[in-house]
Structure formats: structure tokens, C-alpha cells
Amino acid sequence: MANRHRGEIEAVLDGRPHTLVLTLGGLAELEAAFGAEDLAALAARFSEGRFAARDLVRVIGAGLRGAGTAVSDAEVAAMRAEGGAAGFAAIVAALLSATFGGGDG
């Protein structure tokens, strides 16, 4: 079960529940992927709320890996979520909220 106090969320991907968490390593991975100089720049980029599909893949992949699931971004890209693209966007929104303290969901 996911623990929001540790920044974890639970998401259903390919019909199975998964825990996601953005660890410090995952955040560093995202800083590099998005060309952000620091966490403040990364958070500012995310606060714009505009994401390409590849951005969703990167964030979800980093979250899965942070929770211990060995998965590549290519494998994440092949996954399915309820609600399609909107479902993936909701997962990313929940994960970023848990990570950057945006409330309970």
C-alpha cells in the first residue's frame, strides 16, 4: 500500500496496481531529461501543467523505478492505464503532488 507521507502513490498500469515514488535519484534523472538546473526549475516546469507523452513516460518510469520496479521507459510507453492518455496524466499529477507537497491528491 502506498504511503503519501513518503511521497508514494498507487496506480493501476496494465491492470495491476503499482507503487510509484520519485526518489532523489529519480528527480536527478528527470532534471537531466528535462534540462532543469535544479529542483526548483524542475518543479516550475511541472507547474506549467503541459506535458508531452514522452514526459509522462519519463515521470512514470522514474516513479516506478523509485519504488523498485525494474522497468525501462520503452516498457512504460507500452503500458496501458484506465482512461488512456488522461489516465497517464492523472497518475503523473498525483505523483508530482505527492512529491512536491501539493496536498492529498
Results as ranks from 00 to 15, higher is better:
residue 5 H to P: 03
residue 6 R to Y: 12
residue 8 E to R: 03
residue 16 R to C: 09
residue 18 H to I: 05
residue 19 T to G: 06
residue 20 L to S: 07
residue 21 V to Y: 08
residue 22 L to E: 04
residue 26 G to S: 11
residue 26 G to W: 06
residue 29 E to S: 14
residue 30 L to W: 09
residue 30 L to I: 10
residue 30 L to F: 12
residue 31 E to Y: 07
residue 31 E to M: 15
residue 34 F to R: 02
residue 35 G to V: 11
residue 39 L to Y: 12
residue 42 L to T: 06
residue 44 A to H: 10
residue 44 A to S: 13
residue 46 F to T: 00
residue 48 E to V: 09
residue 48 E to H: 13
residue 49 G to E: 04
residue 51 F to K: 02
residue 57 V to G: 03
residue 60 I to T: 06
residue 61 G to I: 02
residue 70 A to W: 07
residue 71 V to L: 03
residue 73 D to E: 14
residue 74 A to V: 04
residue 74 A to T: 04
residue 75 E to V: 02
residue 76 V to G: 01
residue 76 V to D: 01
residue 78 A to L: 04
residue 79 M to E: 03
residue 80 R to N: 11
residue 80 R to M: 11
residue 80 R to A: 14
residue 81 A to G: 03
residue 81 A to H: 03
residue 81 A to Q: 00
residue 82 E to L: 07
residue 83 G to A: 09
residue 83 G to D: 09
residue 86 A to R: 13
residue 86 A to M: 12
residue 87 G to F: 09
residue 90 A to Y: 06
residue 90 A to I: 05
residue 95 L to P: 02
residue 95 L to I: 02
residue 95 L to E: 00
residue 95 L to A: 04
residue 98 A to T: 00
residue 100 F to E: 00
residue 100 F to D: 00
residue 100 F to Y: 14
residue 102 G to R: 04
residue 102 G to K: 03
residue 104 D to T: 08
residue 105 G to C: 07
